[in-house]
């Protein structure tokens, strides 16, 4: 395997013009707007597993489309969170939050749940991430090689097993460092697994040539986006 390495500050790629030099014309998308943007691309009929954080919010935005949400603790057909008085004490999702079950839903045990995932029966998994590399490598489980007790949960199984892996994350860290990079510096969750990235600034596909820009949020210019991205952005032919 390739040992993850930190990129020293002196080696920041030449594409990295300080982002503040090219300001954004409008504020970036909010978390809810990012979730809504992801949801807009999910067609009726897909079976979808949502990770913790912004991915969980995607379910609130699929509107009338029938999408089957899978939770890896063995629930198929997850519905919205219940009102407090309607909580069913035995019905939780993989984040241990109370959920409801839609008509048509079902329960399986953990081995079946992950067989479903590993066997390619889940159309889409949406996960959060620390970094995505231009070849589709994902880092989302450990922030350091020195953390000897990171929590992986089902992330590696989902990243390796789902038919499509979309990652939703802020385009940069709070310090303005790009999360879309040439090579991940954090420990990897899965190699060459990500197929599409949704950030608060853009929608980007992982293509053979690298990051392929599909869409920019309102008020974002190509130069401003490139300045905030750690690897070359390609435009569709």
């Amino acid at each position: 395997m390739n040992a993850p390495t930190m990129i020293p500050p002196t080696m920041i790629p030449p594409t990295m013009i300080p982002p503040t030099m090219i300001p954004l014309a409008r504020p970036p998308l909010t978390r809810a707007q990012m979730a809504a943007r992801v949801a807009a691309d999910i067609p009726e009929g897909w079976c979808v597993n949502l990770g913790i954080g912004i991915p969980t919010m995607v379910a609130d935005h699929v509107a009338d489309r029938e999408v089957i949400f899978q939770s890896e603790n063995g629930v198929l057909g997850v519905g919205p969170a219940p009102a407090r008085e309607d909580i069913q004490p035995w019905l939780i999702n993989a984040s241990k939050a109370y959920i409801t079950l839609k008509p048509g839903g079902s329960y399986v045990h953990h081995a079946d749940s992950f067989a479903m995932i590993r066997g390619g029966h889940i159309d889409l998994c949406v996960l959060g991430g620390y970094e995505v590399a231009q070849n589709g490598d994902l880092a989302n489980w450990a922030t350091s090689n020195n953390d000897t007790a990171p929590a992986v949960g089902g992330a590696m199984d989902l990243a390796a097993g789902a038919k499509r892996l979309w990652v939703v994350l802020e385009h940069t860290t709070k310090d303005g460092q790009p999360k879309l990079v040439e090579t991940c510096s954090y420990p990897l969750t899965a190699l060459k697994a990500v197929t599409r990235i949704y950030t608060n600034l853009a929608v980007i596909d992982i293509a053979p040539q690298g990051f392929l820009l599909r869409e920019m949020a309102p008020g974002v210019s190509f130069d401003a986006l490139q300045a905030r991205t750690g690897a070359k952005l390609h435009l569709p032919d």
């Binding site: 953990h110 081995a111 749940s113 992950f114 007790a149 992986v152 949960g153 992330a155 590696m156 989902l158």
Partner: peptide, 13 residues
Amino acid sequence: LEICPQGTMAERM
């Protein structure tokens, strides 16, 4: 401590 991906843990059993 042995960290094991959740699905791998289930499948190992």
